[in-house]
Simulated assay, not measured.
Amino acid sequence: MDEVIADTYGAMLDWLVDRHGARWSAEALHGRQIFDVLELEVADALRTAMHDGAFFADLPVIEGSQAALAAIAEHCELFVTSAAMEFPNSLGPKFLWLRRHFPFVDPLNIVFCGDKSIIAADCLIDDNARHFARFGGQGIVFSSPHNVDVTGYPRIRRWDEALAVLSEVFPAALAHSGVDAP
């Protein structure tokens, strides 16, 4: 969910600017988690805000994700997962956020977990390759500033190219689904 359909990274940067006036260049964030560039006290303040849970209630939607997931959901079984246990108070706000922005996702197909290896699926689109280590299907990286150096997996840079990437990874499955790749 985070950094795939919800712009958590951008929300963290906005939070930091609003409260600490902190700004970073794209070069400073290239290939790094945001907590890697913060002073300890600022990182602790951001983590505290995120642990409150309300931080996740109004995240921006990543452009194109709604249309792409709606198209995929028409032809494939779609689950939305979040390793939300890092911030357990985020479960309620994240669930409500998903219902508001992705009403076509069956509520029974929303999975909050800690370790995504429990997901039995053909593919997992995620911004963090650590979730692919024990995942049984195909990991697909969704681009974010912190993962620009990750290699070894197919990559989706923007949602408007998702169907093309998925049709390359799963040509037979999508060929029979009726999904037309751009």
Rank of each mutant, 00 (worst) to 15 (best):
R47G: 04
V61D: 03
P60H: 13
I72N: 02
A54P: 01
E41I: 01
I72Q: 02
L69G: 00
V61Y: 05
V61M: 02
E39G: 14
A68N: 04
T48W: 01
L46W: 00
A71H: 07
Q66R: 15
M50L: 05
A28D: 15
R23M: 14
G64R: 08
D52W: 09
L69F: 06
H51C: 05
R23A: 10
A26W: 07
E77P: 00
V80E: 06
G53Y: 08
A49D: 06
I72M: 11
L78Q: 02
M50Q: 12
E63S: 15
A49E: 04
A43Y: 00
F35W: 10
I72H: 03
G64E: 10
S25F: 08
F55E: 12
F55D: 08
F55N: 10
I34F: 06
E39I: 05
V42Q: 12
L38D: 04
A57K: 08
H30C: 11
R47N: 09
S25G: 12
A28E: 15
S65M: 03
L46E: 00
G31V: 08
V80M: 06
A70C: 07
E41T: 14
A71I: 06
G31A: 02
S25A: 09
V42Y: 02
D58L: 09
A45Y: 00
A49R: 00
W24S: 13
R32W: 06
A67T: 14
A45V: 00
G64S: 10
A49I: 01
V80N: 01
L40F: 08
E74Y: 04
A73W: 00
F56I: 08
L29H: 11
A57S: 14
W24L: 14
F55Y: 09
V42A: 06
P60M: 08
L69A: 03
F56T: 02
C76Q: 09
E39R: 13
A45L: 01
T48G: 06
L40H: 12
R47H: 09
R23S: 14
L38H: 06
A57G: 05
